[in-house]
Write a protein that binds this DNA or RNA. Structure first.
Lengths: 173, 173
DNA sequence: TGGGTATATATGGGTGTCAATGGGAACAGA
DNA sequence: TCTGTTCCCATTGACACCCATATATACCCA
């Protein structure tokens, strides 16, 4: 498939916005490399940093991921607020252990694309997600996740079952 | 890993902004030298002062750190606030005994990079953080921390546990 | 509409280069 | 002279970059 380099879209604030769609299962080679789906790469093609940010999900056995812009934006917003609000203690000491942003920053990895559009999955992340030799990329809109095949299949089935039950009180036909 | 010299990014005020990401554990050699992670150095590569500012955290057994630009920006912001607010006493006599900024300034060290991108951790800081022969660099967005391995592992686990509980009232599924 | 060809994606592997680290020589201050 | 600091060079292991291949599909042309 040939994927078109995707024109950058803007959100309300005039910032770039990438959308990740669909699910892909790719091979992890013996060096720990895995191809990021071309469609995802196309969504990030306008970004200054060619690669992704990845961190362990706090709720799932999966890796959470998005473009660097997302982090950058959170970081800037946070710092500006503190500075302009005169909250210098926050700048110097941090938000204490109450800040999700700071926790995620510490666990996040910057994964640049190689010439072929692959990334290297750090051992810590693979371990968290139980990823061995296959990685499933799951588009979640402004984010995507990376799962090991089996846990994802299970999770997917659970999600579907749950919604089916909620929507029509039992099996769709 | 080869780290790209990182293009300087600007925040709202048109100032440079560096983002510190990820966690790295580096060796402290017998001379007290530690390599600052290449990614952090890249984030500071545009700065006029090649090195970092470091001071003991007032809330954790850790060292807090960032580039000199951050200090200057904070000072400037603080000064303008005082001036514009007509708080000339503060400018001339200091913010009184409750000024975190001034307390931190006094405890801060300027640590220049050597040719290999290492810094020397002052004994006082090492002692405060309990650092012996390993230093863990923890990215917190606009700043980073330096911890001894064991206390950081504990702290990290605490943070994650707390957010997990807040998010779904229990462990990952 | 069908077939053929070009191209991009996903993948595998080799190698030069850089980051992290260690040690020694030059140097300054006490 | 002795101690501590700064600069320089050597080592090694990881990985960034290069090239090479197969498969699928987009596109062209008859």
């Amino acid at each position: 498939m040939r994927v078109v380099p995707e024109l950058p879209r803007k959100d309300h604030g005039g910032r770039n916005l990438s959308t990740f769609l669909s699910t892909y299962s790719n091979k992890v080679d013996r060096k720990g490399r895995v191809s990021v789906p071309a469609a995802y790469r196309a969504a990030l093609s306008g970004a200054s940093f060619q690669g992704v940010i990845a961190y362990p999900s706090l709720t799932d056995l999966a890796i959470e991921s998005f473009g660097r812009e997302m982090l950058e934006r959170m970081n800037q917003e946070r710092l500006s607020r503190s500075m302009e609000g005169g909250a210098f203690e926050e700048v110097l000491l941090g938000g204490g252990n109450d800040s999700v942003v700071e926790t995620v920053m510490a666990m996040a990895h910057e994964l640049p694309f190689d010439g072929e559009g692959r990334i290297i999955l750090p051992a810590a992340l693979c371990e968290h997600a139980g990823i061995d030799d296959r990685a499933v990329f799951v588009g979640r809109g402004s984010r995507f996740q990376i799962w090991a095949p089996e846990p994802y299949a299970k999770r997917q089935a659970d999600e579907v079952a749950k919604f089916r039950q909620r929507l029509n009180g039992g099996g769709a036909s």
